[in-house]
Each structure stands twice: as structure tokens, then as C-alpha cells.
Amino acid sequence: MIAPPDNPQTSAKILLGKKLYFDTRLSADNSVSCATCHDPALGWSDAGPTSKGIKSQLGGRRAPPVSNAAYAPLQFWDGRAPSLEEQAKGPIVNPIEMGNTHQVMINTLSGIKGYEDEFKTVFGSSPITLDQVAQAIAAYERTVVTTDSPFDRYVRGDQTALTCVEKKGLEIFNGKGHCTACHWGGYFSDGRFHNLGVAPAPGANPDEGRYAVTKNPADMGAFKTPTVRDAAKRAPFMHNGTEKDLMAVIRLYDRGGGPDGSNLDPLMVPLGLSQKEMTALEAFMKRATVSLNPGVADEKPVPASEFPE
């Protein structure tokens, strides 16, 4: 993983970032950390269908997975942040996520001697700044990347890494299923924005998606292609959690998209998949893309005793 020149990876910075990632003291009422919505145990997302912030407020979208987000050229479902560093700053001040202000958060961290010392060690300066907080969290997130999965092993030549049905699923994934039209590359995503015709959740207003950033009508209702890696851990699916499981997602694609066809991506066409093909596709996504890297698959929260005091 290549880090930006102004934020090189160091072991101390990654460790600091991990502590910040799991620390609820970044939120206004000390109840929400990054990991609350981007939980390693839930595929680095949450139980959904949409994310819950401070005071149990519900957001309009699911938490995108932090795992492998380092590969994404733009962050958030609508791509409004150009880097992990910029992304990290957002939820802190979102009133229904962490509900804090940047200054209060900085003041909080500056009042914790352990953090003050660690920041000074890592960045060589004080006081703590917002950019330093963001850089440390981003540095940690850049370690949450998958290089090992049954799919990766299969690619490297291990014929036994995928079962027969998973191999058939891969064939569909790359052919009749049209999945690789968007979910391609090691990140299983083109990092671009597509309108799949997903309907708003019951009672919710239509979501403008990428349009809110670009004001380009072609982007209305378009959302970033999520990675398929570890997808099975992240049900329900879509930006608003309206598809309950992978088979529901496959069926949505098989129909040529969701019910809202007002600005459907031109890549969306009905697929004519048979039940066997859908089952194979599901099998491929369920197991073949599961991360085997310990730092992705089995990451544990920072024990309470290890947070700086």
C-alpha cells in the first residue's frame, strides 16, 4: 500500500492511529468511535441497515467498509473526500455520527497526557492538530488491506483454493454476471459511481448520491462501487441497506437493477442468470473473497487498559 508523501507509514503512527480508531472519546458524548460503525467483526462496517451515531441517531446510509478503503481513489459513498485523511475528519463533526467539533475533539485529546506524548513522538511537534489525528487514523487504515484470500491463492496457482462451484461462480462473475464491469481489479471495485436503481428505504427520502458533490445530473442517485472483498460479512447491502443478503443483491442485478429506473447506469441490463448460476455466484462471493490476513479478518479492538490516559 502506497502512502501519500506527506503521510509516510511508521509503526508508531499506525499504532497511534489504531488507538484513535477505537477510541470513543473522539465523539461528543464519548459513545462512538470509528469502530462503532466500521467494526472489524462486521466486515469493517456495521449491522445496519444504516449506521447509528451518538444518541442512537440513524444516518441515511450504511457505513462503507474501512477494509481495503485505502485502494479507493475517493472516499464515502458519494466520493466527497479525496483521501483517507480527509475522510477521517468528516464523521467527527457530523451531528448524527460523532456529533463533535474538531476543536473540542482536539482539546479532549490534548488533555490526555498519553496522547499528547504519543503525538509528539510520532509527529515531532505539539500541540496536537486535526491533520495529525487524521493522518494517524489514515495510516492505520492503510494497514487494513487484503492480500490473502481463497481468491488470491487461486490466482497465485493454488487450484484447491476454490471449490468447483466457486470456480463456476468466478466464471459467472467475470462473464454473464457482468460483475467485473465495475467490481474489477485487486480492490474488486472501479472506484467510480453508478446508479443501480436502488429505491429509498421505506419512509426515507431519495438520496442524491454523487450528484450532491458534482451537481452533474448524470450522477443523480449514483454511489461508489463497494469492494466485494468480505462482502458476506456486511449484510444488508447497498448504500441504504435495502438488500438483505447477497442473493437479494444478485437478484437485483439479474433484474437489471432496482425499481428506480429514472437514471439507471447504462451498464445495468437484465442478466438472465439461472438459479444455479446465481448460487455459484453467491458461493464465490461468500467464501472466495474472505480476507485471510489477520489484520483484516481477526482485528481486535484496543483493550480499554491500553488507551492513553
Binding site: 490466482v155 496457482g157 470456480k167 468466478l170 462473475f173 485487486g186
Partner: peptide, 11 residues
């Protein structure tokens, strides 16, 4: 297999 898998890796 290698060709098939170049699927995603080609990206």
C-alpha cells in the same frame, strides 16, 4: 485458471 482469473486481476 490463470487466464480465467485474469478477470479481476487484469484490472
Amino acid at each position: 485458471k490463470i487466464i480465467v482469473v485474469s478477470v479481476v486481476l487484469a484490472g
